[in-house]
């Protein structure tokens, strides 16, 4: 399954209202809960938090990729959150994170999980595209940017 197949307006939130790392993780997982993508909010949040506890997934240039594995989901789940104001996420370059891709997968779906993360890694290399996403006015615009429509 390509990452693009997971993208829909209901799993995108812009702007995020959180102002710190613990809150933004909760808000991203809540996007999935509100979209009806997950039933067990706590299990998903714990999986994401466990990974963050090892090392922040805040990359350079305002991108963060919180991810984790849990039996609480049966298929790959993606949430996208945008915080144009930036949130301190203990990122690699010390800069605030603005574009969040949260990915959670079942432990038995390592292949699709890795493939989707690899697509996000490619996307993160395109500064201009990431800036366009950060400045998108609505989830609809994010979908349009991603599909190239």
């Amino acid at each position: 399954m390509a990452l693009i197949g997971l993208i829909s307006e209901k799993i995108i939130k812009t702007p995020l209202v959180s102002t710190d790392k613990p809150d933004v993780l909760r808000e991203l997982v809540q996007i999935l809960a509100d979209a009806g993508e997950i039933d067990n909010y706590d299990a998903v949040l714990n999986a994401i938090q466990d990974r963050e506890d090892k090392q922040s997934t805040g990359l350079e240039q305002g991108i963060a990729v919180p991810h984790g594995k849990t039996e609480a989901v049966s298929t790959l789940k993606l949430a996208i959150g945008i915080a144009p104001q930036g949130i301190d996420f203990n990122s690699m370059d010390g800069q605030p994170s603005k574009l969040f891709f949260l990915l959670v997968a079942s432990p038995g779906q390592a292949g699709p999980h890795v493939a989707a993360l690899a697509e996000i890694a490619k996307l993160a290399r395109s500064k201009a595209f990431c800036n366009a996403l950060i400045n998108a006015a609505s989830p609809h615009e994010v979908v349009e940017l991603m599909t190239g429509e």
Binding site: M1, L3, I4
Partner: peptide, 17 residues
């Protein structure tokens, strides 16, 4: 089956495709 949603962006290429 490949994703029904298509993207013209290179970042979203599907390895199977």
């Amino acid at each position: 089956e490949l994703s029904r949603i298509r993207s013209r962006r290179d970042e979203f290429y599907d390895e199977t495709e």
